[in-house]
Amino acid sequence: MRSPRTRGRSGRPLSLLLALLCALRAKVCGASGQFELEILSMQNVNGELQNGNCCGGARNPGDRKCTRDECDTYFKVCLKEYQSRVTAGGPCSFGSGSTPVIGGNTFNLKASRGNDRNRIVLPFSFAWPRSYTLLVEAWDSSNDTVQPDSIIEKASHSGMINPSRQWQTLKQNTGVAHFEYQIRVTCDDYYYGFGCNKFCRPRDDFFGHYACDQNGNKTCMEGWMGPECNRAICRQGCSPKHGSCKLPGDCRCQYGWQGLYCDKCIPHPGCVHGICNEPWQCLCETNWGGQLCDKDLNYCGTHQPCLNGGTCSNTGPDKYQCSCPEGYSGPNCEIA
Score class of each variant (00 low, 15 high):
residue 163 P to H: 01
residue 64 R to P: 15
residue 249 G to V: 05
residue 295 K to T: 08
residue 72 D to Y: 07
residue 45 V to A: 03
residue 188 D to N: 08
residue 197 N to S: 02
residue 123 P to H: 03
residue 98 S to F: 09
residue 211 A to D: 02
residue 218 K to Q: 14
residue 235 R to Q: 09
residue 334 E to V: 15
residue 80 K to R: 15
residue 291 Q to P: 11
residue 203 R to S: 11
residue 232 A to D: 02
residue 19 A to V: 04
residue 101 V to L: 13
residue 265 C to G: 01
residue 93 S to I: 09
residue 306 C to Y: 01
residue 187 C to R: 10
residue 283 L to F: 03
residue 201 R to P: 11
residue 262 C to G: 02
residue 115 N to K: 06
residue 251 C to Y: 07
residue 246 K to I: 07
residue 124 F to S: 00
residue 212 C to Y: 04
residue 49 L to M: 04
residue 26 A to T: 12
residue 237 G to A: 05
residue 213 D to V: 02
residue 39 I to T: 00
residue 269 P to Q: 08
residue 186 T to A: 11
residue 111 A to G: 06
residue 73 T to I: 14
residue 269 P to T: 08
residue 34 Q to P: 00
residue 190 Y to N: 04
residue 284 C to Y: 01
residue 2 R to S: 08
residue 20 L to P: 02
residue 41 S to F: 13
residue 256 G to C: 01
residue 171 K to E: 12
residue 178 H to D: 10
residue 324 C to R: 01
residue 224 W to R: 08
residue 123 P to R: 08
residue 140 D to N: 04
residue 139 W to R: 08
residue 57 G to V: 14
residue 21 L to R: 01
residue 94 F to S: 05
residue 126 F to S: 13
residue 289 G to S: 03
residue 115 N to H: 13
residue 154 K to E: 09
residue 237 G to D: 05
residue 85 R to H: 06
residue 305 P to L: 15
residue 329 S to P: 08
residue 65 K to N: 14
residue 275 I to V: 01
residue 182 Q to H: 13
residue 64 R to H: 11
residue 216 G to R: 12
residue 231 R to T: 06
residue 298 N to I: 00
residue 214 Q to L: 11
residue 36 E to G: 00
residue 155 A to P: 03
residue 23 A to V: 13
residue 183 I to F: 12
residue 32 S to P: 02
residue 8 G to D: 14
residue 57 G to R: 06
residue 14 L to P: 15
residue 107 F to V: 08
residue 159 G to C: 07
residue 124 F to L: 02
residue 44 N to S: 03
residue 220 C to Y: 01
residue 200 C to G: 03
residue 247 L to V: 14
residue 287 N to D: 11
residue 281 Q to R: 10
residue 166 Q to R: 13
residue 259 G to C: 02
residue 2 R to L: 15
residue 155 A to V: 12
residue 75 F to I: 04
residue 61 P to Q: 12
residue 55 C to F: 08
residue 25 R to G: 03
residue 115 N to S: 01
residue 268 H to L: 05
residue 106 T to N: 04
residue 152 I to F: 06
residue 219 T to P: 13
residue 106 T to I: 08
residue 11 G to V: 15
residue 294 D to N: 04
residue 112 S to N: 06
residue 271 C to W: 00
residue 277 N to S: 06
residue 149 D to E: 09
residue 115 N to I: 11
residue 171 K to T: 11
residue 125 S to R: 08
residue 316 G to V: 14
residue 316 G to R: 10
residue 218 K to E: 14
residue 306 C to S: 00
residue 280 W to C: 07
residue 279 P to A: 14
residue 277 N to T: 06
residue 63 D to Y: 13
residue 250 D to V: 05
residue 269 P to A: 03
residue 147 Q to R: 03
residue 176 V to L: 11
residue 188 D to Y: 00
residue 276 C to W: 00
residue 216 G to D: 10
residue 70 E to Q: 14
residue 263 D to G: 11
residue 303 H to D: 10
residue 259 G to V: 00
residue 153 E to V: 11
residue 334 E to A: 05
residue 303 H to Y: 14
residue 92 C to G: 07
residue 204 D to N: 07
residue 176 V to A: 12
residue 306 C to R: 01
residue 255 Y to N: 08
residue 168 Q to R: 12
residue 295 K to R: 14
residue 102 I to L: 14
residue 144 D to E: 04
residue 309 G to R: 10
residue 135 L to R: 05
residue 119 R to G: 09
residue 109 L to V: 14
residue 63 D to N: 04
residue 301 G to E: 04
residue 41 S to Y: 04
residue 110 K to E: 11
residue 248 P to R: 15
residue 313 S to I: 15
residue 335 I to T: 04
residue 205 D to V: 05
residue 92 C to S: 02
residue 2 R to C: 13
residue 240 P to S: 03
residue 171 K to Q: 13
residue 77 V to L: 13
residue 234 C to Y: 08
residue 197 N to Y: 11
residue 181 Y to D: 00
residue 266 I to L: 12
residue 250 D to A: 06
residue 193 G to C: 11
residue 216 G to A: 03
residue 91 P to L: 12
residue 322 C to Y: 00
residue 247 L to F: 05
residue 266 I to M: 05
residue 18 L to H: 01
residue 129 P to Q: 02
residue 274 G to R: 00
residue 97 G to A: 14
residue 68 R to G: 15
residue 201 R to S: 07
residue 306 C to G: 02
residue 135 L to H: 02
residue 242 H to P: 05
residue 236 Q to R: 13
residue 157 H to N: 08
residue 261 Y to S: 05
residue 169 T to M: 14
residue 99 T to K: 03
residue 2 R to P: 05
residue 89 G to W: 13
residue 67 T to N: 06
residue 156 S to F: 14
residue 115 N to T: 13
residue 211 A to T: 06
residue 76 K to R: 15
residue 193 G to V: 00
residue 10 S to C: 04
residue 60 N to I: 13
residue 293 C to S: 00
residue 66 C to Y: 11
residue 166 Q to E: 09
residue 105 N to D: 04
residue 327 G to V: 15
residue 309 G to A: 08
residue 116 D to H: 13
residue 255 Y to H: 06
residue 294 D to G: 02
residue 296 D to N: 10
residue 262 C to W: 02
residue 170 L to R: 11
residue 149 D to G: 04
residue 173 N to Y: 09
residue 265 C to W: 00
residue 28 V to G: 10
residue 293 C to F: 00
residue 12 R to G: 06
residue 45 V to L: 08
residue 256 G to R: 02
residue 140 D to H: 07
residue 210 Y to H: 10
residue 331 P to L: 14
residue 183 I to S: 01
residue 296 D to G: 02
residue 285 E to A: 01
residue 335 I to L: 09
residue 221 M to R: 11
residue 159 G to A: 13
residue 129 P to A: 06
residue 287 N to H: 06
residue 245 C to W: 07
residue 53 N to H: 01
residue 252 R to G: 12
residue 76 K to E: 14
residue 142 S to C: 11
residue 101 V to F: 11
residue 330 G to A: 06
residue 82 Y to S: 15
residue 292 L to V: 04
residue 227 P to L: 03
residue 131 S to A: 02
residue 213 D to G: 06
residue 186 T to S: 09
residue 9 R to G: 12
residue 212 C to W: 06
residue 312 C to S: 00
residue 66 C to R: 12
residue 329 S to L: 15
